[in-house]
């Protein structure tokens, strides 16, 4: 099985460059930072000082779902940045160092080459997210109140779909652009532009991928997965597949030109 061999190569590479160690740890770090700072905010403000004597700070009581939303916001900014940074060099780097030529000189199909990369990064990102959200779920239950296991699965699965989109977009740009820095730049730019467009046309773009976090929050509040979330997740996954297929097509054409 050629595809399995390629996948093993990618997994081994991500193990050797320690991504399998530090990415899960950083995602866990990001997921527990916000529950802790939210919970201990009064004490933190107290110890920082600078408040006049006798100031009483009324902190609102946070519901579990609200803290989840804050954390998803964190994961949508810093988490997405990390995902882009670990994925960006996967094709451009191999082009530069000549590894892609070494691989593709053999009868390896472009589809296998790129989809193995895609799956290997998805495994890494989904595993990291699983541990991150698991620890997050534990902290929420200790500090803020009950959040059921089904709700944990809801957060994990649907936010994973969003990160799948981010990986696909990064791999897409990685096959289009030659420089690794530009891959990161275009990916972040696209995601920012998408969130802006979603913001402006929010009454039309009900099912934009950027709305996933909001629908997860809504589902937690309602106590069941709202149908908008299913549709948005489906569309997001569809776009991801489309990006994967088109990046293979573009990559094929580019490699033809070179050789």
């Amino acid at each position: 099985m050629q595809w399995m061999t390629l996948l093993k190569k990618e997994l081994l590479e991500n193990w050797r460059n320690k991504k399998w160690i530090w990415v899960p740890l950083v995602i866990i770090l990001l997921s527990i930072m916000d529950p802790l700072t939210t919970y201990f905010m009064p004490q933190i403000l107290d110890s920082v000082g600078g408040m006049p004597e006798g100031t009483v700070i009324e902190m609102p009581e946070f519901a579990p779902a609200e803290v989840v939303l804050i954390t998803l916001g964190q994961l949508s900014s810093l988490g997405v940045l990390i995902v882009v940074l670990i994925t960006m060099g996967t094709i451009t780097g191999e082009r530069k160092s000549g590894v892609s030529e070494l691989v593709l000189v053999k009868p390896v199909s472009f589809w296998n080459y790129i989809s193995a990369k895609w799956v290997s990064f998805l495994l890494l990102v989904w595993a990291s997210l699983f541990f991150g959200i698991l620890v997050h779920w534990y902290y929420i239950n200790i500090l803020f109140g009950n959040l059921s296991f089904t709700e944990f699965l809801t957060i994990f699965f649907f936010f994973g779909v969003w990160l799948t989109f981010v990986v696909s977009l990064t791999i897409f740009y990685s096959s289009v652009v030659k420089s690794t820095g530009l891959v990161a730049f275009f990916t972040i730019l696209t995601i920012m532009a998408m969130s802006l467009v979603t913001e402006i046309f929010q009454y039309v773009l009900d099912w934009s991928p950027n709305n996933l976090s909001d629908y997860i929050f809504e589902s937690l509040v309602n106590g069941e997965v709202v149908s908008d979330l299913w549709i948005t997740a489906g569309i997001t996954f569809g776009i991801s597949l489309l990006l994967l297929v088109s990046s293979v097509q573009i990559f094929k054409r580019k490699e033809m030109v070179i050789s």
Partner: peptide, 20 residues
């Protein structure tokens, strides 16, 4: 004080930092 009183909660943070 907050840190020492709630050390179980902050311990994972510290361990992750050290491992990294």
């Amino acid at each position: 004080e907050v840190l020492t009183e709630n050390i179980q909660l902050f311990l994972p943070l510290i361990i992750i930092q050290v491992v990294l």
